[in-house]
């Protein structure tokens, strides 16, 4: 009996002490972690909307499917474009891309690949500026397309990375899906006002 009491007591005390220490550490670390996340988000938005100095967040939908867009605002408080995240499958794992859309809802202002697990040296070249820059000023109507081995011919085309067609295709597909969803849920009039 004595033994059991001791066992329970030791385990409970260890758990309680550990929990207490953890709560303290969390209390100190959590604000910093949140701050890091926010900073990362803000930097990504400012990359795809280069004139933006600040942003506001708009949310729609229920908990199951939430759509978030960020309105980029320049120094004079003028709307410079909206940014949103395109999330979807790649060649291996997910690709998360921050996408910037111009206020006329016709062109992309830029993209930035936030997370990806593509093959190093091949698919992961989607995060290189040479690839990302192709999306600046790209027309989204009727939709973004990619072609291979040649320079793009139409204003809505980009050139796929040689040897990494699947990753390039995934980026284009994810952007198209995200753009479509944003256009449907956030009509232009709503954003402009």
């Amino acid at each position: 009996m004595n033994k059991i009491v001791k066992m329970v007591l030791v385990l409970s005390i260890t758990g309680a002490v550990s929990g207490g220490i953890l709560a303290q550490v969390f209390h100190f670390a959590d604000p910093l972690i949140q701050e890091n996340r926010k900073k990362e988000l803000r930097e990504a938005i400012f990359v795809v909307l280069s004139e933006a100095k600040d942003y506001t967040t708009l949310e729609k939908g229920n908990d199951k499917e939430k759509i978030v867009v960020y309105k980029g605002i320049d120094a004079d408080g003028k709307l410079v474009g909206i940014a949103f995240i395109a999330d979807g499958g790649g060649f291996q794992g997910n690709i998360r891309i921050m996408v910037g859309l111009s206020t006329d809802y016709l062109k992309l202002k830029g993209i930035k690949v936030l997370e990806q697990n593509e093959t190093p040296g091949l698919g992961n070249r989607i995060k290189e500026p040479a690839f990302e820059d192709q999306f600046r000023g790209l027309e989204i109507k009727p939709k973004v397309e990619y072609i291979k081995y040649r320079k793009p011919e139409k204003p809505n085309q980009i050139q796929a990375i040689t040897g990494a067609t699947i990753s390039s295709e995934a980026v284009v597909k994810n952007i198209n899906n995200a753009v479509e969803r944003v256009l449907k849920n956030f009509p232009q009039e709503e954003i402009l006002k």
């Binding site: 550990s18 220490i21 953890l22 550490v25 969390f26 100190f28 670390a29 959590d30 910093l32 972690i33 890091n36 990362e40």
Partner: peptide, 15 residues
């Protein structure tokens, strides 16, 4: 406990 502390510390200081 220590692993969680290390994890939180890295996430807070060296993202």
């Amino acid at each position: 406990l220590y692993v969680t502390v290390a994890d939180l510390f890295l996430a807070a200081m060296f993202p």
